[in-house]
Structures are given as C-alpha cells and as structure tokens.
Simulated assay, not measured.
Amino acid sequence: METTRIVRFRAKAPEAPASLASRPTPVLEPLPLERLALVALVLGRERAAALLDGLTESDATRARDYLAGFTALSSARRQARVAVEFGVRPDAAARLRQMMEDAPGVLRREIFRRLPSFHRSLFPSFQMEPADTAVPARVGTWAERLIREATR
C-alpha cells in the first residue's frame, strides 16, 4: 500500500533592503502646547479641558490658558486660526471644483464671489459679478460655509 505525503514549505519572508534596515526610526516631536489646545478644542469642544488633563501640571495650566484664549475667539476667528495653524486640505482644489459643478446657478455665483482670489483662479470661465441684492443673505452664508467645508 502506498501512502501520499503532503509536504508544505514555509515561504521565507522577504528580507528588508539594506537601505531600510540602516535607517534610524524617526523621532516625532511633541506638538506645541498652543497647537495641542487648539486641536483639543476643535476635536473635543466641551471635553477640551478634560483632554488636557493627561499633561503635567505646569503644561496643563499653560494649555488651559491657551484653551481659554481660543474659546474667547469668535467662531470665524477660531476657524481662521485652525486654517493658519494646520493649512488647507491638500485636495481643496478638487473639492471646490466638485462643489461648483454640483451647485445650482445662484449658489455657484455666490460661491465664486466669496472665494479667495487664489481659489478663483481655478475657475477661469467665471467672471466676478457685483453682489445681487435679490439674493437672500442666507445664500451667502451657505456659500461661505460650503467653501470652509471644502477647504478645511
């Protein structure tokens, strides 16, 4: 009687190239306390102070001072600060193009009118028009909101 044997070989894991093996692991620098407080406020809102509790006492005190300053800002100034600190989205241009494509005519004109000049260059076929008094103010508010969401 013959028996059949199944033999399995373990595949060897590919070895890492020498260039990767010799690289030192990157050391991440800690976030400055001011930016940490801003992130806690953006992500945690009402829990922002509690998010800072894990810091050392002196750092937590300084971070809470920054947090109080950010909380005192208006929403628009706070959003501007976030944009300055962390920049606009890398895909902001594509998101703005898609938004303009999807928006109805009146909203599209308001969006274009309220875009910063460096973003207006994405739409060479549009012309700057004076504000239309027949358009309700809420359309402008909506346009500003859509721009913020597309770029941040």
Rank of each mutant, 00 (worst) to 15 (best):
M1D: 09
E2D: 15
R5K: 12
I6T: 12
V7S: 05
R8L: 02
R8W: 01
F9G: 04
R10M: 08
R10G: 14
A11M: 07
A11D: 07
K12Q: 14
K12R: 15
E15D: 14
E15M: 07
E15H: 13
L20M: 09
S22Q: 15
S22A: 15
S22P: 09
R23C: 08
P24S: 09
P24C: 00
P24L: 03
P26R: 10
V27F: 07
L28R: 13
E29G: 00
P30L: 02
P30C: 02
L31A: 14
L31F: 13
P32T: 11
L33W: 10
E34V: 00
E34S: 09
L36Y: 06
L38A: 15
L41Y: 11
L41P: 10
V42A: 14
V42N: 11
R45A: 13
R47P: 07
R47Q: 15
R47I: 04
R47Y: 08
A49K: 08
A49V: 08
D53I: 04
G54E: 00
L55W: 08
T56R: 15
E57D: 15
S58E: 15
S58P: 09
S58Q: 13
S58G: 06
D59G: 09
T61K: 12
D65T: 12
D65Q: 12
Y66C: 12
A68I: 01
G69S: 11
G69M: 01
G69L: 04
G69N: 12
F70V: 10
T71P: 03
A72S: 13
S75V: 01
S75F: 02
A76I: 12
R77G: 02
R78I: 04
Q79W: 07
A80D: 12
R81T: 14
R81H: 05
R81E: 14
A83M: 08
A83D: 11
E85P: 11
F86N: 11
G87T: 06
V88Q: 03
P90I: 06
D91Q: 05
D91M: 00
A92Y: 00
A92P: 03
A93E: 15
R95T: 14
R95G: 10
M99W: 00
M99D: 04
D102I: 02
D102C: 05
A103E: 06
A103D: 04
P104T: 02
P104N: 05
G105M: 03
R108V: 06
R109G: 13
E110R: 12
E110T: 05
I111K: 08
F112T: 03
R114F: 03
P116T: 03
S117E: 15
F118W: 09
F118V: 06
H119S: 03
H119D: 05
R120V: 02
S121A: 13
S121K: 13
F123E: 12
P124R: 01
F126V: 04
Q127G: 09
M128Q: 11
M128S: 08
E129Q: 13
P130I: 01
D132K: 01
T133D: 14
A134C: 00
A134R: 13
A137R: 06
R138N: 02
R138L: 02
T141P: 00
W142Q: 13
A143Q: 05
A143N: 09
R145E: 15
R145V: 04
R145T: 12
L146R: 10
R148A: 12
T151M: 07
T151C: 14
